[in-house]
Simulated assay, not measured.
Amino acid sequence: EAAVMVLGKHSGRHAFKKALAELGYEVDDEELKRLFARFKEIADRKKQVTSEDLVALVEDERTRAPEMFKLVDMQVHSGLALTPVATVRVKTPDDEVTEAATGDGPVDAVYKAISRAVGLSPTLERYRIEATTGGTEALGEVMVRLRQGTVVVTGRGIAPDIVESSARAYLDALNKLVSGVGAREVIETP
């Protein structure tokens, strides 16, 4: 049984690369740079980053479509007696767009705001949350399935905050929708 590796916010690039190698990942300098930046973001918000977190991080990064749309900023206000409101800033190929929307819950509000920002509103067919590791500090992984006409895509997102994971998953799916990467045609059968 291999010991669970744990990295923290002070772990350097070398320790990070070594941990990835021990998990069986070969990474070039470009991928290492991207992964290390994401790792630092997560490590700043989470005391310990485990080997399971690293696997989730690499898999998430490797299944991404070209980023036509990228989440720049997001704010969500919700509470028991509040209508959830989300404001998102999304980088599009043309510009940065800020949009706000209300929803049935914080995730719904975020999805509506993102849809406005990018000008696409596919049908959300599936939404699933998984904690990749135990404890309240777990990284949350969200998987969504979107449909636009006969095209279906799956998006994944990972972050310490479940609403942010949800936004990342939605944008991942939207990027696949516009780029065609990972998209599949579903023929309707009566």
Rank of each mutant, 00 (worst) to 15 (best):
V4C: 02
V6Q: 02
L7S: 05
L7N: 07
G8M: 10
A15M: 03
A21L: 11
E22S: 14
G24D: 05
Y25M: 12
Y25N: 11
E26S: 07
E26P: 03
E26F: 01
E31M: 15
L35T: 09
L35F: 05
F36G: 04
F36K: 02
A37H: 01
A37E: 00
A37M: 03
R38P: 01
E41M: 10
E41P: 00
A43T: 01
A43F: 00
R45L: 14
K46A: 08
Q48S: 07
V49W: 07
S51I: 08
E52C: 11
E52K: 14
D53M: 03
D53E: 04
L54K: 03
L54N: 05
L57N: 02
E59G: 07
D60V: 04
R62E: 13
R62F: 15
R64Y: 02
A65M: 15
L71A: 08
L71H: 11
L71K: 03
Q75K: 04
S78R: 09
A81I: 12
L82G: 01
T83M: 13
T83R: 10
V85E: 10
A86C: 15
T87W: 00
V88A: 00
V88E: 01
P93M: 06
E96W: 08
V97D: 05
V97Y: 02
T98I: 14
T98P: 00
E99H: 02
E99M: 10
E99S: 06
E99A: 13
E99V: 04
A101I: 07
A101Q: 00
G103C: 14
D104T: 14
D108M: 13
D108G: 08
A109I: 10
Y111A: 13
K112D: 07
K112T: 06
I114Y: 02
A117C: 06
V118G: 02
P122L: 13
T123D: 12
L124G: 04
E125H: 03
Y127M: 12
E130Y: 12
E130W: 11
A131L: 10
G135L: 14
T136Y: 06
T136Q: 09
E137R: 12
A138C: 12
E141G: 07
M143W: 10
V144N: 06
R145K: 14
Q148G: 10
V152E: 09
R156F: 07
G157E: 02
I158D: 01
A159T: 14
I162H: 02
S165G: 06
S166R: 07
R168C: 09
R168D: 07
Y170F: 15
L171R: 01
D172T: 11
L174V: 14
K176T: 09
K176D: 02
S179Q: 11
S179N: 06
G180N: 01
G180Q: 00
G180E: 00
V181H: 04
V181A: 13
G182K: 11
R184Y: 09
R184W: 08
R184V: 11
V186H: 01
E188V: 03
